[in-house]
Design a protein around this nucleic acid. Structure first.
Lengths: 213, 213
DNA sequence: CGGTGAAACCGGACCACGGTCCGCTTATAT
DNA sequence: ATATAAGCGGACCGTGGTCCGGTTTCACCG
């Protein structure tokens, strides 16, 4: 992933319609070619507008105009503004997932599970803050999407199991992830002016307390 | 507080403009009488619309029309739709705060701090779910408002101090509160279909792990 | 007690944006 | 070549939010 200097933006891969890392089973009807072209053009346009004017500058009319299509097409492809944002977010999320699944340790496999968990926390903290605007703009479509929340929850549950945590692992995992959500982090960073390192240290402490290891 | 049978709605006190329990220091300019009348009429109107059509049925035009004022007045009084929702929320929040500050134990003072903390968690869990729609509609204005977040955080920090918790109490309190936020709870209840009692039991376990008591 | 000035307030016309809809166009399979 | 379904586009709507000219309230003073 290459970051521009202008802000927390993502570099779009050449093929925008690539499948997520964990593909769904039935690909009943593939996309028509013009539809695929438009999807890519729309994502590029949205990306460019974000680079220029920020997230709030992204209007559905504006994206459609820049991509040279009608407004209806944008909604056909992405359902809503949140859906468009979620699609944008999906790329960085997919890339990040790859580094968790098959990247170098300690984030990737190979390290002891507790070390992986702590590396996960740090990485997730940074990623969430970097994409905070996009995540917020994606709203429910981003949080509840298959790619975003579920993968993270599954991974933490798995690591907790490996560590040997006892108790309601699903809910303990949620408790460990909740302080890494955007609203909580923004409250701490922007309003209470907390230091990022302090938050990280506290999260490591929290992980030890919750896992009791 | 008297609950109607129609849904999770609040009974408005007779004087809508009463001050919060922890008043701000400088009340520089008191409200003009017509302005106070309008504020009350607007809150009543909004409340009635919620009872009839739910939160999504609340439009700023609708509230203004029902209160017999112009739309501009609504925005002057509450700043935004979120601000209006936050004002509505403030009443139940204030009442709940009263039961924490001066109500019967174990929620109120008198019980050992750990018992108070557990009672707090249960009560907060129920209250948050009851007002979930309103809290979500209040958005940032609700979360960041003085009355809502700050009071809760202060109270948990205080109890943690009394219990004798060591560590970064401010951030441990946040970690304990984060799983009680609306988005997390709705994810668990609505999407993962979790039982309310299970969530409560897990939160109690979490409180023991985090406080290490 | 009544007048007076200024600040606060009010209202509804106006704008921008998200989202919908339906008749027309185009790609693809046969 | 043709049928058919998917795709497309832009006119249209409802809603949140802004703005500014006219009106009301209230403190102060003669």
């Amino acid at each position: 992933m290459v970051w521009t200097t202008a802000g927390p933006l993502l570099q779009l891969p050449s093929l925008m319609s690539e499948r997520p890392l964990l593909p769904l089973l039935g690909d009943a009807a593939p996309e028509r070619r013009d539809a695929a072209r438009n999807r890519e053009a729309l994502l590029v346009a949205a990306q460019e507008i974000i680079e220029t004017c920020g997230i709030d500058g992204v209007t559905m009319d504006g994206v459609a105009a820049r991509a040279g299509v009608g407004k209806g097409t944008v909604f056909r492809r992405f359902g809503s503004r949140e859906g468009l944002m979620a699609a944008l977010l999906n790329f960085s999320e997919t890339e990040w997932q790859a580094s968790v699944i098959s990247g170098p340790p300690p984030l990737g496999p190979g390290a002891p599970p507790m070390e992986r968990l702590l590396a996960f926390g740090r990485s997730r903290l940074e990623t969430t803050l970097r994409f905070a605007d996009l995540i917020r703009a994606a709203g429910a479509a981003g949080t509840r999407s298959y790619a975003a929340y579920s993968f993270v929850a599954m991974h933490v549950r798995y690591l907790m199991g490996e560590i040997g945590v006892t108790g309601d692992i699903a809910l303990l995992a949620t408790a460990l992830l909740a302080p890494l959500e955007v609203p909580i982090l923004e409250q701490q960073v922007q309003i209470e002016g907390m230091d990022l390192d302090r938050i990280h240290v506290a999260w490591v402490d929290l992980a030890h307390r919750i896992t009791q290891h």
